[in-house]
């Protein structure tokens, strides 16, 4: 594994590790770790670092929806054009072009169902290229970004074994 790949694998697991902490888990020194992270950021490969939050544990109402979007394109308009326009809205948390029955899968977040519905009907649906939207409100989240929201299991191993 290259330095970059090794650092990347560790950051994907826990982006809060300091360079010193990453260094002692690898054969790299702190400066090499910092350089690898700088490279990854400069190349636009690492775009950000975020906490994975289970909002339910905070007893906070966060309304999220997965929205299917169908579009029609013409010679002047590409998928990228439509995507750029949609991605600018801060309500849009994720936007992906997908294969299958529809074109884009968009994740939207808001304070209330009304706010999210309003956003879709007022801002998304009127976009001329968009021909259809299907909104799925997220009712429960079990796993996000590879993190399981279950309680896990206790370590039931014997404390000493040969």
């Amino acid at each position: 594994m290259s330095n970059r790949d090794e650092v990347l694998a560790i950051l994907r697991e826990n982006a809060r590790y300091s360079a010193a902490e990453i260094a002692e888990q690898t054969d790299l020194d702190e400066a090499e770790v910092e350089a690898a992270i700088r490279d990854l950021e400069a190349a636009g490969a690492v775009r950000g670092y975020q906490a994975v939050i289970d909002w339910e544990r905070l007893e906070r109402e966060r309304v999220r929806a997965a929205v299917e979007l169908n579009v029609t394109l013409d010679r002047e308009t590409s998928y990228n054009d439509v995507a750029e326009r949609l991605a600018r809205f801060p309500q849009v948390q994720a936007l992906r072009l997908v294969s299958g029955d529809y074109d884009f899968l968009m994740e939207v977040e808001g304070e209330s169902m009304r706010q999210v519905s309003h956003f879709i009907s007022e801002k998304v649906a009127p976009v001329p290229e968009i021909t259809q939207t299907v909104t799925h409100y997220i009712m429960e989240s079990y796993k996000e970004q590879g993190v399981d929201f279950g309680d896990g299991t206790d370590d039931d191993r014997l404390s000493i074994s040969p």
Binding site: R157, L158, S159, I160
Partner: peptide, 27 residues
């Protein structure tokens, strides 16, 4: 087993971090 006595000592404590385990921590 030679580690029997030590095992019993460790089993009595419930707040230890054990680096004495000969099996994976993964499921």
């Amino acid at each position: 087993s030679g580690i029997r006595r030590f095992f019993e000592l460790a089993e009595e404590m419930d707040d230890i971090i054990s680096l004495g385990v000969g099996e994976p921590d993964f499921s």
